Simulated scan of single mutants.
Amino acid sequence: MEITLTFEGRIPAQRGDLDVTWTMRRSFSAQLEKVWGKAPFETLKEWEDTAFAAGAPKFTRAVSGQTFVPLYGRDVGVGVDLDITLLTGMPVRKAVISAGDLDNRVKRIIDALRVPNGQGEMSHKLSPGGRYYCLMEDDDAVLSLGARLGPYLGSDDTAVSFAIVRVRPIAMRVTLGNLAMLF
């Protein structure tokens, strides 16, 4: 099943501002929570509800007292093809490519779609025991990637961007448990 996620806000090319990544992560989490437990992801919810009994893969991750629930990844056996369209606010008469480093912005989006790699990627503004839905457990789940850049005409603020992330599942291995997620 194809999923389309969106984000409107700052996506700077420079790394280092953890709050920006967490703003995106919270936005994506709220969108992914809407598909959690519904076809084709009901199998993941059943696995979690049974405490991963009968050999079900334990795909959830605990990082610094927070629970992360990735929908795709190696444990589930399904990777993703990401098609990212990044619309950026641009000053008048400035070339599209000079509006920012596309590679770094795409990497920031991918970072926000995955489970944090540890304490260094955690925000200090989180309440204990939070639950976040992530697209994937790690960026290793990205098996194919396309990106394009265009002008964002929805805001007069040149720092505001609009990202459209189209997600298509790709089999890493096919099982009865993940078969529905592939179509």
Rank of each mutant, 00 (worst) to 15 (best):
F162L: 12
V78H: 08
V165I: 15
K45W: 07
L82H: 06
D101C: 09
F28W: 02
Y133N: 08
E33H: 12
I3T: 15
P151L: 01
P151G: 06
G65Y: 02
L82P: 04
L149Q: 15
R61D: 12
V96P: 09
K38T: 15
E2Y: 08
A53I: 02
V167R: 04
R26K: 14
V106T: 13
C134R: 06
W47G: 07
T50G: 10
P128N: 11
R148Y: 06
E137T: 13
L87F: 13
G130E: 02
Q66V: 07
G65R: 07
V69R: 15
L113Y: 10
G65C: 09
M181P: 09
L18Q: 13
V63H: 03
D17V: 13
Q14D: 15
S144C: 03
M122R: 06
S155M: 04
D157S: 10
E42A: 14
L87Q: 13
R166A: 15
T67E: 11
D49G: 14
I170R: 15
L44W: 01
L143P: 04
Q31P: 11
M136H: 07
P91M: 09
P91F: 12
Q66K: 11
M181S: 09
I84C: 08
F183R: 10
I109L: 15
T6E: 01
M90F: 14
D139P: 08
A62C: 00
N117Y: 07
M181K: 09
V106N: 03
A171P: 01
V174R: 13
G154H: 01
R168E: 14
A171V: 09
D19I: 10
G37C: 03
T50K: 00
P91N: 13
K125I: 04
L149I: 14
T88S: 14
K94C: 14
S27Y: 02
Y152G: 07
F59R: 01
Y152V: 02
A163C: 10
V35Y: 02
V78D: 05
K38G: 13
A147L: 00
V106G: 02
P151C: 01
L5F: 09
R105A: 10
E42T: 01
E2F: 10
R93G: 14
T60C: 12
S144F: 11
R148P: 05
T60F: 05
A13Y: 04
A99Y: 02
L126W: 06
G154I: 03
D156S: 14
G154N: 00
D49K: 08
A171Y: 04
Q66N: 12
G77T: 03
G65H: 05
V92G: 05
T23G: 08
V76H: 03
G129M: 04
T6Q: 02
L149P: 04
V96E: 13
V165Q: 00
S161A: 15
R74V: 11
T4P: 00
P116L: 01
A159E: 09
L149N: 10
P40V: 07
E2M: 11
M1L: 07
K58C: 08
L149V: 11
A112K: 01
Y152H: 13
L126E: 14
F52M: 00
M24K: 06
D111L: 03
P151Q: 08
P128E: 10
A159G: 08
D103Q: 12
W36A: 12
